[in-house]
Design a protein around this nucleic acid. Sequence first.
DNA 1: CGTTATTTGTGCGTATGTATT
DNA 2: AAATACATACGCACAAATAAC
Lengths: 287, 287
Amino acid sequence: MKPEPAYQVLRQRLRDEIAAGAYPDGVRLPTESELVAEHGLSRQTVRRAFQDLVAEGVVYRVPGRGTYANRGYLRQLGSIEDLMSLSEDTTMEVLQGLSRRVDVTAASRLRLDHDVVYTVVFRRLHDRRAGAKRPGESDRRAGAKRPGESDRRAGAKRPGESGRRAGAQRPGEMNGVPFVVTTVHLPESVARLVSDSAELADNAVGTNTVIGVLEPHLDQPIAEAAQSITVAPADELVAAALGCPPEHPMLRVDRLYSDTTGTPVELSVSHFLPEQYTYRVTLRRSS
Amino acid sequence: MKPEPAYQVLRQRLRDEIAAGAYPDGVRLPTESELVAEHGLSRQTVRRAFQDLVAEGVVYRVPGRGTYANRGYLRQLGSIEDLMSLSEDTTMEVLQGLSRRVDVTAASRLRLDHDVVYTVVFRRLHDRRAGAKRPGESDRRAGAKRPGESDRRAGAKRPGESGRRAGAQRPGEMNGVPFVVTTVHLPESVARLVSDSAELADNAVGTNTVIGVLEPHLDQPIAEAAQSITVAPADELVAAALGCPPEHPMLRVDRLYSDTTGTPVELSVSHFLPEQYTYRVTLRRSS
DNA sequence: CGTTATTTGTGCGTATGTATT
DNA sequence: AAATACATACGCACAAATAAC
């Protein structure tokens, strides 16, 4: 099947032990030699595992003294939990339900050896409920021009949608302001797990995240999300769904979610309206 | 004097070549064997250099095909240390030295009860030297990590076909490529501490960060940096300093640094050229 | 269509140097 | 001074992915 590399296995094992509190404040982790003896590995393999843990910020090493766990390994306020909590005050509207596609770029970024992915496209709207949390103050400064608001909400894209799906939406009202269009790509093995889920079907409306729908079905939990953030112009689909002019500069956020074994599980490409959304992270000192 | 490790030297050399545009879109980097032959190193040493570059997000590798440079200048900014390490391979050019200003917006964001701030404006350029790093502290960031690798196009550009000849860089930019303009605002109490520093004077050039210049003078160390990232058009100052058209969409990153008591110490507003810079951060699960 | 060559991925063994206790 | 433990570096072997033939 898929023989996990030995250094990955060891890395995960050490990570688990540290998380379980096996190595409190001043307690030295096993030395390289001890791990070699215990697991029957070579010293190079053990070293590779430790190098990765150092890069990850989980441990630090002192020559001649030993390896120690970094206490308070949080240093990252912008965590995956924050991404999931997006569902708490926004609404998701599926524009194109989960379906099979051929996409070389997405497939290779998911590290697949073929070109088939399963894709779902949706937009997200700020909720208009009273008492909802502040969706994010806009940075108002001179010179920032708003995109064309003339035809707000290109409803033409999804005709005859209102009606069923009675959950929590008040028909006849503007339920919120769309601020992002997201395209999610899944490998087939993952897509199978949620292919029956109504949350990802065409025209579905709800307050969840793909990752939230996905995770209960996975063997391994999501452990990491690598993000890259840049600027990209709006294409036709994005412009229509958000009611901004085509070519409008958007904040583009790509996220590659991986599980604890490092296997990519989901690739999402989001285009945010910069007038309505600002990406926020707080960085902390590791020490 | 401690000699720089061989894999660090090679890593820096490759990083410089990539920044200099030696490996455009579909061009493969030298293989491990080629580098072994060229530098007289062992394959493991070459591999270590590549692993670090992968972890850094500078290159991606495909088994059986080769190693390729990632488009633009990718950079992992997951901690405050990462922000400070910008000084290691970029150059800062002061455009407007530290001087007193009245700026209501900046002052209020620094939580001041008046309107006076001290401001310095500079741009940053990709470095081109084959520089020796000082033996200050041990280098974190080792080993490789699977999840990332943001881009992977299957651009099968045959070498030998001309199209665009190598080079393709702006003529007359021998000292580096500018990629960001930053405006830093300081409260008066903080500005006093560095008002004599030559590093922040008009037309100063150096390889440091404002935060790096600042911190030794502070009572409390910097503990936190709250960032917000959005899109903003280039104003005249930015356009002139970076050589892009005015109104060009830029990646705007605001950072508010605070010390351990929560007191704001520095506000920086940066405009990055999205063509040359992608903001990258990896989120992890806390527990 | 399989075969082969190239290139990266994984793993092992060894040797030497350096920092700490 | 000696033992311990990490840091760097060389060597080799085989597996897996890719591309060219």
